[in-house]
Design a protein around this nucleic acid. Sequence first.
DNA 1: ACTGCAGCTTGAGTCGATTCAAAACGATCT
DNA 2: AGATCGTTTTGAATCGACTCAAGCTGCAGT
Lengths: 338, 338
Amino acid sequence: MATRSIKEVARLARVSVGTVSNVLNRPEIVAPATRARVFDAIRELGFVRNEVARHLRVGRSRTVGLVVLDVANPFFADVAQGAEALADEHDTMVVLCNSGTDPNRERRHLDQLEQQRVMGILITPVDAGSPRLADLAARGTPVVLVDSAATGLQCSVAVDDRLGGQIAAAHLIEQGHRRIAFVGGPPSIKQVADRRAGAAGAVEAASGVELLDASMPMLSAAAGRAAGERVAALPPAERPTAAFCANDLLALGFLQAMAACGLRVPGDMAIVGYDDIDFAAAAAVPLSSVRQPRELLGRTAVELLLEEVAHPERHRHRQVIFQPDLVVRESSALRRRD
Amino acid sequence: MATRSIKEVARLARVSVGTVSNVLNRPEIVAPATRARVFDAIRELGFVRNEVARHLRVGRSRTVGLVVLDVANPFFADVAQGAEALADEHDTMVVLCNSGTDPNRERRHLDQLEQQRVMGILITPVDAGSPRLADLAARGTPVVLVDSAATGLQCSVAVDDRLGGQIAAAHLIEQGHRRIAFVGGPPSIKQVADRRAGAAGAVEAASGVELLDASMPMLSAAAGRAAGERVAALPPAERPTAAFCANDLLALGFLQAMAACGLRVPGDMAIVGYDDIDFAAAAAVPLSSVRQPRELLGRTAVELLLEEVAHPERHRHRQVIFQPDLVVRESSALRRRD
DNA sequence: ACTGCAGCTTGAGTCGATTCAAAACGATCT
DNA sequence: AGATCGTTTTGAATCGACTCAAGCTGCAGT
């Protein structure tokens, strides 16, 4: 109710609305005395510029959407922080949306963001192949894939997940493990599939090594616990001696299940996680993990988006790929020969 | 560029803009044949309603802002999830903003949210006393304080932090500790001050117990490590035997510092954290912690806001307060008498 | 044939800020 | 006094969707 408009400011300062607008946007072209009068009026009325009207008129929004698979996963919190840091430098807001790996929630968020006419969308999609994403781009909302490589239709920032899966598995093989469980998530998620493929590659390259699948429909600690219980329940002869988990939440849950079932880590079960979230190092058994440049992912995604928005005509989509590396901690320390 | 407006839809469907608007908002009053023609046109053009224009006209936004102290703290991620869950049921978006306990970033976010004319703002303020919050409310943007009790000028949802601090300290005292460190954060943050006050109360009620302050300017794991190193460096006679940390991130960092300095937990140093984030249970030494209903805080905050927006006239500000409880784990298990 | 009425559709006006061509102003120079 | 030029200010048109009073149609009732 107490919302003042530019018109009321104009009346109080005895100038036209055009002048008030000029004071707001190009104060240097307004005579100092007038400018001061307008500022006084603004202060007196407690005027706050209506960004909605401004946006409607100029057609450009100052917010970008970031749709992630799971806000509760510190990995995405860090990506978001990186994104926000750079956006902030450009006076831009980041709207963080959580799809929770549910394609319907993802679609709803995309619909809303498009209706809001955001400047662009950064997304870690549940299903990167979805035509919805191509539609968005075609209708004029730039899209940047985060943590998932694109195929030329849009920009993307990603980490080489096959390589990550490969070095994780290779490390476990080198430690002498011959039966390795892969604890993944929904297979539609590209990162999961790639990490698995990388691990499978390393397993095939070695001889006499098996990769067992113990994937769950979710990427949470609870899912990791469930997977751990299932694996622990196997007869010792069939049980893998190591697990490679598609992310650290799964790995932490898996680790807890091992403790609960009386299996020692790394003695009975070595574990390697993925993402190297801060909590991995603080776990009951410090967790080996494949590290990704989290903030940098977010920051670079915003960078690509701003680039595309600034020069839509001469823009060429780019795929930025970072290299992961393995951080070895106690959870996969050298296996005792028995 | 490929942005279609209601006008183009009207032309293609050979109806007036008013009819298209009716199809969008009250389809039941439009004749079925007309409605079908309009829907066809919408599909053919790939029309997406411009929420910005709609918002300008109807004056009400469908997004709420949530400003938190630290997105990387899983506590706030969970609060955000609770908020989003309820907002979602009301077709409302939650814009998550991170102040990082920096008053300037907080102010910038509040400015932006107010300019966007959001439906309301949920905030865990850096400084709850700031006049900025009262201004917002006075100018028509409802504010709900989250995790911080208000004094009647606005709604709030909080957990009784004094009580939380008290039960944490009482527990440590009961375990036989006589020198207890309080590891807090910036004192302007009300939660920190209240938790400290609660602990101080418990300490005074017991006799011969001291509370030492080891507060840091941040509420992160890194700050916790720094505090831990400082405390560990004290001569054993002066060193406290227990630490109560203002949140779990601090506690996890503190715990890591103990391990690094060769002090055993809980043998040489008992630790109690605050928030009971999921990672507390998975820590190297499972962490005792004061539990708060995280999702419920977020959910209730949105509930209060929606209530206020729905009936601004008959609305009376409410302060909802939840009770915390202590979850005892290994990090504060009974102290061996020596 | 005329009236009344219900059901649909129309289109001008509006929300608040921006834009820009045109007008107003004021100082300087003939 | 009048012409000229640079600086300021003006105000109508605009962005896209919503609203609502008014208009139109066709049908039932008399």
